[in-house]
């Protein structure tokens, strides 16, 4: 029974992890940017939900669109105004640029929000569904379902809309896409905006089931590193697989090795996968 409970917890956690990593995978896959700001957008999205709940009593699941739209705009501006200037530079430049922005934003967030850990506590927070002797926390299930739905919408968007196709064309060949009349600067800004919106959405979800603080962005960022590396870049199933594997490894690792080493397991997995199959377990060729 303990194993069944841990299995369910792992799957629920894995779904959230996948949701966290999707935006990161998109930005990395399309623009070859290792987006250090990803955790920061996630954290800010969580704070949008937190403050709307705290100040106006808005239900956390209703404030999702607000957090997504504000962070889409923020991401769009950041990409258009700053990152687009150095897109063709060695890939390392964009990494260090987003790191600089992350330092700045996190510091400001600590100033305005304080470093305390916050969590949204709606009235149904402690509610859980009993099922055959197992207890399934209601909030985590909702987060899981919403995460999967939103990821599917993104998947559909990438495959079936004009903008989605332009994004994929840009990923395949920057210059050819430009010759076909794609406005690269705009497409890049939209892609980055979508990445930020996805991060913010998962941040809003995380702020309900877990806790956030301005400095927790690094934690989610390194989770994204691990998930994308395990699962591989270039498709959403990769993020899903990576998320599930990490969720399982962390929960079962905590059971056997003690909770202290829970985070270390992720890094061991990361290094092992890089050693055995650097393109990730489900990664497609050409996305290294």
């Amino acid at each position: 029974m303990v194993y069944a409970q841990i299995l369910i917890n792992s799957i629920l956690l894995g779904g959230i992890y996948a949701c966290i990593a999707v935006g990161f995978s998109l930005v990395w896959g399309v623009m070859n940017i290792l987006n250090i700001m990803h955790g920061t957008f996630l954290m800010l999205g969580g704070y949008v939900t937190f403050w709307m709940f705290k100040l106006y009593g808005v239900d956390p699941f209703l404030s999702l669109p607000v957090s997504a739209v504000t962070m889409f705009c923020a991401g769009y501006v950041v990409q258009r105004g700053l990152i687009n200037k150095i897109v063709r530079a060695p890939m390392f430049m964009s990494l260090i640029l987003t790191f600089g922005l992350q330092l700045l934003v996190v510091r400001l967030a600590i100033y305005f929000f304080t470093g305390d850990f916050r969590s949204v506590q709606p009235s149904y927070a402690g509610f859980s569904i009993p099922l055959m002797g197992l207890s399934i926390p209601f909030v985590r299930v909702s987060i899981f379902v919403l995460g999967v739905v939103l990821t599917s919408i993104l998947f559909w968007f990438m495959g079936h809309t004009r903008t989605g196709r332009a994004i994929r064309a840009t990923r395949m060949d920057l210059d050819s896409a430009q010759l076909m009349g794609v406005d690269i600067g705009r497409i890049y800004a939209i892609t980055y905006g979508i990445g930020a919106a996805a991060a913010a959405t998962s941040g809003s979800l995380v702020s309900v089931g877990f806790a956030i603080s301005p400095v927790s962005d690094v934690e989610f960022l390194s989770k994204s590193f691990i998930i994308c590396t395990i699962g591989g870049l270039g498709n959403i199933t990769g993020a899903l697989a990576g998320g599930l594997i990490l969720g399982l490894a962390e929960n079962f690792g905590a059971l056997y090795l003690g909770p202290g080493l829970q985070n270390a397991i992720g890094y061991v997995l990361l290094i092992l996968v890089l050693f055995i199959k650097p393109s990730g377990l489900l990664g497609r060729k050409g996305f290294e």
Binding site: N32, M91, T229, L270, L274
Partner: peptide, 23 residues
């Protein structure tokens, strides 16, 4: 092992090593 990696994967691997040591 890690110098076989290039670009971002190398960066992430070295980051992972430092974090693993800290843990």
């Amino acid at each position: 092992p890690i110098l076989r990696l290039r670009g971002h994967y190398f960066a992430i691997a070295t980051f992972g090593v430092a974090e693993f040591f800290r843990e």
